[in-house]
Amino acid sequence: MSNSAHNTPAAARAASTIPDLVNEKGGMDDFLKGLWKENPVFVQVLGMCPVLAVTNTVTNSFVMGVATTFVLVMSAIMVSATRSFIPKQVRIATYILIIATFVTVADYAIKAVSLSAHRSLGAFISLIVVNCIILGRAEAFSSRNGIKDSVMDALGMGIGFTFAILMLGVIRESLGSGSLAGIPIFGSNYEPWVIMVLPGGAFFVLGFLLLGINAMNTRRSGVKN
């Protein structure tokens, strides 16, 4: 009862701006939509800071993807579990506190596993706190769904995000350094396309990927109609 009183206005607001976010079909759909249909990078175009900044190597992309997925899932569990206790005036502050905690946990964990990965990601690990995918999912989904659905949603979004930045990482590293995860793939005669590992290359690659994906989606919906 207190739950519905807390949810109604916010749910109505969200439903009017972002349709299709609260669906009734249960777990699997919540999981699958993040992979492609509502991919956080290619469709929602959220969290552009890490997408542009750390995709210069495959390793960086992978570590960033895994860390973000971890934070997404853990904060989804916490937000969903506490959603009926948290006064709505302080919900954003609470979510940020929860997210920041798990980001710090991820930060320590990365340091413990691989110091070199931590060095090459630098400040961008701490900046996961302000990645809007995480706060977005907490506010739009976990705060009004059960734990199981929230975990599925967070996992889907996290894997979708990891997939997207890995794609950028593979393209940028192979063209820009002639290697994949540090292993040379083109032989010694390859002259690296340096612009690809510079910030400008991130914009080019992301732009072309968005162009391709939008063209594909437009064509597909055109066929349907």
């Binding site: 009862m1 207190s2 009183a5 807390h6 009926s84 006064p87 709505k88 302080v90 609470t94 506190l97």
Partner: peptide
Amino acid sequence: ANAPANPGGSAKMILTL
């Protein structure tokens, strides 16, 4: 929690945070 008419209250907010 028993008072849906008054979900706020600074005491509760402070306590939650």
